[in-house]
Design a binder for these strands. Structure first.
Lengths: 347, 347
DNA sequence: ATGTTGTATCTAATCGTTTAGATAACTATA
DNA sequence: TATAGTTATCTAAACGATTAGATACAACAT
């Protein structure tokens, strides 16, 4: 559409100086006489000139853009994280490219190819799954700036910013156990995610430590959205009263909402008939109308710190040790589990 | 970090041909003998070569990136729209840059400067406010590819993709009137937004058409998030029983949630003591646990169509008439307004 | 042998910047 | 006046791709 950009040459011509001089006044990088500075600035104003970022990018071999892969921006866990990345990037003179992967390997490949093409200077990956390992490892090996946020890969040497999944999972499980639950189900999310793996593992461990059974057939993994959780719950709640779970922990708040909706639809009451805990602490579930008990994941902080580390990595050529940050999480007790009152009576 | 990119020269050297030949085989743009094609492809594979997108961008004077401004990705209305843009962009070989403006003029200026810098080839603006007018008009005048989505500006010549706010607002208002409400409040969102302007105007008009009073002091504009709506509602609900609104329409679902929470906290029942309608039909409010009655805004379609038009605009040099699309909306009746049953009795 | 035609590949300019090094124009010194 | 030393500005080469036009070579006709 736009066909005639005004370039540094036009400014040089109009101000009757060389392009070098123009560049010097723009970047303030060598002494230029006051009257020429004036002429150049005038020409810039007159012609409404802005230096071309692509040409600059070619010269400096950098785009000043960073990429962010997320599973799906439509899952309310991610917007906050994305916003943090964008804000932190902007502060440092970078802009952010958004890549929804839907946990698809092909999409991860596209994202990393942006790095090779020089389209982005660094990549924040929140979507690392075991099936992406080879792609990611190769990029790290070739020294491209990458940081893994939220999800990581076992035994990988790279910067990571994670949340304390082990604590979160054990805390949630214990909360339920304290409330008297013995048949607890954990809906663990996509396969190959360290987030799911760790939370499920610690859940099972905690159950065993308390002498409680881990039901093999309740070990539900795979895509966990609202729909899947809703369906799984319907199935589970059809089990007879003395066998079915009295509590469900879901790996995400949105999944937990599916659980609740299914139970509600079957005429069950929350928390009396079924206790529910989520993960994430997405804004919406914190409202009084929903009031979901959940494990707060510091999504903003995850994004902010991840972006900061990435940009450091891009700029400081050599940083010989990787940074591995783990952020604290917190159980937010609200209405979907019931609670014991002061005197120890369950309500 | 990465310091030695392999370039087309390296391939040329390794394959013992000129750079032109390499380019010809990569882009399949002139005949090259089979054995040289083979040699070039081998070299590309051996050295793991990918053409540099920035250099290409400079040559072609385009970045293959488009920008998207949104108020705040944290407001669940936008992720779906953003996802649509990203998907449609990817299909057409573009990637998407995300810009949260927080309805701040300065941020809009940054976004448009990306266009001038050649950092992006086109811009989708969902954040147009009256105070951005001069910035936006100037860019349009200079023929940069821009499309206004969701919000527009009065009397502006440019491609737009909007939703049918007039119908949505009148439909929602009539729904409430049919249910017997006479004191209805409309919380109208940020000043200077055509979305708010139009919805409020049609609301007032509809009220008048039905001989109902429009309370001047309930004409609440300004930032409308959860918090503001919550506070306004608290204030309103403190009015005496026979004066306060019996129904509130909020310009967004998130705002509506604030309304509901405030009322709930004051011991009121929804919908018996207060009916609530939102706008957007964000996924979360459609769940059984929330069940908000709301006007569905086709956010995905808004993003998809907007992106398509923008890309057409970028590619087809001349399109002498602007496209102005209005997408249909729909009232989703759920639980926050109550309803009349078959026999006309209010429930 | 000479000229013509056609084919495969190469050279070099271009896109819009930045910047090292050359150059020209002063000023100061002997 | 010649020389050295400063200072302000310019020329031209990068950055990594694409591509028009030049060129070299072979095949063929005369």
């Amino acid at each position: 559409m736009k066909e005639t950009h005004v370039t540094i040459k036009d400014i040089a011509k109009k101000a009757e100086v060389s392009v070098a001089t123009v560049s010097y006044v723009i970047n303030n990088t060598r002494y230029v006489s006051p009257e020429k500075i004036e002429r150049v600035n005038q020409a810039i104003k007159d012609l409404n000139y802005v230096p071309n970022a692509v040409a600059r990018g070619l010269r400096f071999r950098q785009s000043k853009i960073i990429g962010l892969t997320i599973t799906d921006i439509t899952n309310p866990f991610y917007p906050e994280l994305a916003k943090a990345c964008e804000t932190e990037a902007l502060i440092n003179g970078y802009t952010l490219i958004l890549i929804n992967t839907n946990d698809d390997r092909e999409r991860t490949a596209i994202a990393t190819s942006y790095l090779r093409e020089g389209r982005i200077d660094g990549l924040i990956i929140t979507t690392a799954l075991e099936h992406d390992r080879s792609i990611i490892e190769k990029m790290i090996e070739e020294n491209y700036p990458i940081v893994l946020v939220h999800r990581t890969l076992d035994n990988i040497q790279v910067d990571t910013v994670l949340s304390d999944n082990a604590y979160g999972s054990s805390r949630a499980t214990k909360h339920l156990i304290d409330l008297g639950h013995r048949r607890i189900c954990f809906m663990g999310g996509v396969d190959g995610s360290t987030v799911g793996n760790e939370r499920v593992m610690v859940f099972q461990q905690t159950m065993r430590e308390h002498g409680l059974p881990v039901m093999e057939e309740w070990n539900l993994r795979g895509e966990v959205g609202y729909k899947k959780s809703y369906e799984d719950t319907k199935r589970l709640m059809n089990l007879s009263n003395d066998v079915r779970p009295t509590a469900i922990i879901n790996i995400s708040d949105i999944g937990a909402l599916g659980v609740i909706d299914a139970a509600l639809e079957m005429g069950m009451r929350i928390p009396e008939d079924l206790a529910v805990i989520g993960f994430d602490d997405v804004f919406i579930t914190s409202t009084k109308m929903v009031g979901l008990t959940t494990v707060h994941i510091p999504s903003y902080e995850l994004g902010r710190v991840g972006t900061k580390i990435l940009i450091d990595r891009i700029n400081k050529k050599e940083l010989n040790h990787y940074q591995n940050v783990t952020l604290p999480v917190k159980l937010m007790v609200r209405g979907t589990c019931g609670y014991r009152n002061q005197k120890g009576n369950k309500m």
